[in-house]
């Protein structure tokens, strides 16, 4: 793809909200560490289905190492 196309897409993304990069990063930083502790099964665990002890950010692991 041309540099012009790339630049157009980038400036569109920046204009649409990438100036919120810091906001997003601050929140995303809470995503991973919280999950491991909060999703551990509790004694009164009545949840079924999709509540697992694994955290979602390791939902997939890469097999290419």
């Amino acid at each position: 793809m041309s540099e012009k196309v790339k630049l157009g897409r980038r400036s569109f993304l920046v204009a649409a909200g990438a100036s919120g990069a810091a906001a997003a990063a601050a929140v995303a930083s809470k995503v991973a560490p919280q999950q491991a502790t909060t999703e551990t099964p509790k004694a009164d665990e009545k949840r079924k289905g999709y509540h697992l002890s694994e955290h979602v950010l390791s939902y997939y692991r890469t097999t290419k190492v």
């Binding site: 569109f12 920046v14 649409a16 100036s19 919120g20 810091a22 906001a23």
Partner: peptide, 9 residues
């Protein structure tokens, strides 16, 4: 979280 300041959309 901080506000997102949109420049366009």
């Amino acid at each position: 979280a901080d506000e997102i300041v949109a420049e366009g959309d």
